[in-house]
Amino acid sequence: MDAAIRYNSEPPIRRPVAFAAAMLRDLKAARELAWRLFLRDLKAKYRASILGYIWVVLPPLVVTATFMLLQNAKLMNVGELPAPYALYVLSGTTFWQLFADAVQGPLKIVSQSKGMLVKINFPRESLIMAGAMDALFTFAIRFILLLATFAYFETSLPLHSGLVLLPLAVIGMLVAGLAIGVLVTPLGTLFQDFSQGLPLALSLWLIATPIAYPASNVSGLITRINSLNPMTPLIEVPRNLLLSLPNPSYATWGAIIAIATAASVAAWLLFRISLPHIIARIGS
């Protein structure tokens, strides 16, 4: 027989060793379930739609088309570019969408699973992991679209040693997004303001990040914002790697990923501590 399970009112962090052990145990138990939940959502996601998986590639295409239109109508002047504009924007948005999905994913999947959360005790980490798997899967499909665009412009993807950093850039982007997404999930589940506000905040943030324009070609307020925006290196590094452009600073980029990793662990702690309280408040 296993050791007895105890539930009481004591704050879990008063027993840090037991708490950390439980976290790791649940993380392990969550993997298989996460995979099943991911497959479930993937199978069901587009089953009742006509366009099906085409929906996966539409968001980056629409964003790219919007910026191309703005630029074409001379509403926006992005200056000299080292690559075709469509390719430049699509590289940035493909990575940006991974971030946006990772930010919005946890709150979305936790809200969708409310019925399950208040009725069944299961490793809840599986929900976050399933959301992360979905974001990565979507990114993979969009990345194939990006490669096809490279082929279209006959700028074959130049192979160079810097590309080994690309997987780290993808993981770093995902972790940064998840850190924010998991951090807002407890309050977001209680208060609807967050699910309303997140898409708004993200569309503002998209403009504040050098995706539709190179940071070097703008001036004034936006330059200051770019330099303070932690997303700037997270977008620039992978895009410049793909387009074989020089990268400004790997050090800042690495530091941001390290901070994001620490933040995501903190977010995980908060998520675990707050869940029983959230379930008590959202009721049946």
Binding site: M1, N8, P276, I279
Partner: peptide, 18 residues
């Protein structure tokens, strides 16, 4: 719900084997 471990007691204790 407290026995199922879904919500946390405000006082007292639950001990479960199995």
């Amino acid at each position: 719900k407290q026995i199922a471990g879904l919500i946390k007691p405000d006082a007292g204790e639950i001990e479960i084997k199995g």
